[in-house]
Computed example of a mutant assay.
Amino acid sequence: MKFLHDFMNMKSNGEKMTMLTAYDYPSAKQAEQAGIETILVGDSLGMTVLGYESTVQVTMQDMKHHAKAVRRGARDTFMVVDMPFGTVGVDDKTDMENAVELYQETNANALKMEGAHTAPLIKRCTQSGIPVVAHLGLTPQSFGITGYKLQAASKEAAEELIADAKLMEQSGAVMLVLEAIPSDLAATITKTLSIPVIGIGAGADTDGQVLVYHDVLNYGVDRKPKFVKRYGDFTTGVDALKAYHEEVKAGLFPSPEFTYKKQIMDEVDA
């Protein structure tokens, strides 16, 4: 497993980092086998595997359930877990209790929090020994306000994002995710900060990249954001399931090679 000092060294040496968003035991196991350095248990599991309309419906229990499965599948991979909607910004005491609960019960290596408003909580978590990955740019928990579109596209917004990124580092964030922002702005922030910057829809000049397992493999997704590249195609699963359905209907499955054979009925008094 890589640790925080390893990621800092990778940034210093110009070595790119890989992060993959995964939500269960088999996907986590595959990610670890592939050598992915960081797994993010993202609240995007709401839409991707639970069928919710957005991340807003994701609960603390959802995050704990899936994070525990991921940890079982990838025991030797650095795991980051999202703080879900409604668990940050309640009040100082409740926010910290939520962070401690999620960190302890999932055996996470770090938590992830969206938005610059989380800076005070990031600072308190850091002081308490909980590493935090910050997330700026397009923050899905705030999609009702920002929309799913390019962020920081104006000079004023870009300057604000740079200031927010510096605030995240000053507050103690160990890593920063930048989503759906202009590539030149992402490059500037990456050079400005001493902590690793991971991009998603933020160009090639960040310290690393993150994509969602289901997007990478075209597995059960109905959308393809501009920044997603397909590296596999799990839609072949539909053809396989159709073939299974048709063989059962036609009496072709199970054939003899898939059947336990034992001459026992001669001994049975039916």
Rank of each mutant, 00 (worst) to 15 (best):
Q30A: 15
A31M: 07
A31F: 02
E32L: 02
Q33R: 13
Q33L: 14
Q33W: 02
Q33D: 13
Q33V: 04
A34C: 11
G35H: 05
G35L: 03
G35E: 06
I36G: 09
I36K: 12
E37I: 01
T38G: 04
L40K: 09
V41Y: 09
V41T: 03
V41N: 08
G42R: 07
D43I: 06
D43S: 12
D43N: 08
G46P: 08
T48M: 14
V49N: 13
L50D: 00
L50Q: 14
L50N: 03
Y52N: 09
E53T: 13
S54R: 04
S54Q: 03
S54D: 10
T55P: 06
V56H: 06
V56M: 08
Q57D: 08
Q57F: 04
T59C: 01
T59G: 08
T59L: 02
M60A: 11
Q61T: 09
D62Y: 03
K64E: 13
K64S: 09
H65F: 14
H65I: 01
H66G: 06
A67P: 06
K68S: 05
A69K: 15
A69V: 01
A69R: 08
V70E: 05
R71Y: 03
R72V: 01
R72F: 04
R72N: 11
G73R: 05
A74P: 09
A74D: 07
R75P: 12
R75G: 05
D76L: 02
F78E: 00
V80L: 12
V80S: 08
D82P: 04
D82S: 10
M83S: 07
P84Q: 07
F85G: 02
G86T: 02
T87I: 13
T87P: 04
V90P: 02
V90N: 01
D91C: 10
D91R: 05
D92V: 10
D92E: 14
D92H: 05
K93N: 11
K93H: 11
K93G: 01
K93S: 13
T94M: 14
D95K: 08
M96E: 11
E97Q: 15
A99W: 05
E101F: 14
L102R: 00
L102N: 00
Y103S: 05
Q104F: 11
E105R: 07
E105P: 01
E105W: 10
E105V: 11
T106I: 01
